[in-house]
């Protein structure tokens, strides 16, 4: 048990990152545990339209209702679930593809490297949100396609990091030592190179998370991502736009959620970078 707690502490990124980490953990708990304990529905319509927040945890519309009478608190909670879930899927898929392509480019070099890296350059030469809009325009709008678009945009960061790490690692004496003991290229990649790429990849993943959430929200806001009535922060923001003057809280609340989440991921990412980059600082 104590070991478990110790591991839990080791995951803490340290410094400002700890605050981000705690915020994220509470968002996760809120998004995935709260719906199990409380009777929350993001779609149920009540008679009270645009009810002001009661700010009292015991009375029902804690944060009020939106223009269709849906519980804002429930929608925000489900929005957290949606954003974090999508973020996870996007980062996981782009990480796997990106790391794979990075390893290939780094190890084989030559035309394969050139091909992969030019594709990556192509992806990086447009602002990511524009690129996402282009991809969604090609694939058709909808949450699924938005996820695909954001995943594709997430790939280059991993390719670049892993490729440069791989090229560096392949020069190391211990990689030569592994070849000299009869290891195949695949084994060297798997047991010597890949583990050393983990720290920078973790950092990139944390930063990728925040970008993915921001982009999904942006697409939602533009009406290219989540479609109503799905509770998604970006889409909620778009829906509440007409009421920005009369009921500013409807815009502020999902906006604050996006801000908080993205900020937390960035804090965690930066702290991890500081902690993991000076290589053996605290192994």
């Amino acid at each position: 048990m104590q070991a478990r707690i110790a591991i839990g502490f080791r995951l803490m990124p340290g410094g400002w990152g700890n605050i981000g980490f705690l915020v994220l953990v509470s968002l996760l708990l809120l998004g995935f545990i709260a719906p199990l304990l409380l009777d929350l529905s993001p779609y149920r319509i009540s008679a009270e339209l645009l009810a002001p927040p009661s700010w009292n945890p015991l009375s029902v519309p804690v944060l009020g209702t939106d223009d269709l009478g849906r519980d804002m608190f429930a929608r925000l909670v489900y929005g957290a679930r949606c954003s974090l879930g999508i973020g996870f899927v996007v980062v996981a898929v782009s990480l796997v593809i990106g790391v794979g392509l990075g390893l290939l480019a780094g190890v084989y070099g030559g035309w394969l490297d050139a091909l992969i890296m030019r594709l990556v350059d192509l992806l990086m030469c447009l602002p990511s949100i524009l690129l996402a809009i282009v991809i969604v325009a090609v694939l058709g709008s909808g949450l699924g396609n938005a996820i695909v678009a954001v995943t594709i945009i997430g790939i280059p960061r991993f390719v670049r990091v892993v490729r440069s790490m791989t090229i560096q690692e392949m020069q190391k004496t211990y990689v030569m030592a592994a070849f000299a003991s009869g290891s195949s290229r695949l084994r060297v990649l798997w047991s010597e190179v890949l583990p050393n790429c983990v720290p920078p990849v973790i950092v990139q993943a944390a930063l990728g998370f925040s970008d993915a959430i921001l982009e999904i929200a942006a697409l939602g806001f533009l009406g290219l991502g989540a479609k109503p009535p799905v509770a998604e922060w970006g889409a909620m923001l778009a829906d509440a736009r007409p009421f920005i003057e009369s009921h500013p809280l409807l815009v502020v609340m999902p906006g604050a959620c996006i801000l908080l989440t993205v900020l937390s991921f960035n804090l965690v990412g930066d702290a991890l970078r500081d902690r993991l980059d000076p290589k053996l600082a605290r192994l």
Binding site: K172, T173, Y174, M176, A177, E192, P195, K279, L280, L283
Partner: peptide
Amino acid sequence: FQDPYASLNPR
């Protein structure tokens, strides 16, 4: 190998 620092994988 020559360099006992570089020839062992630090991780």
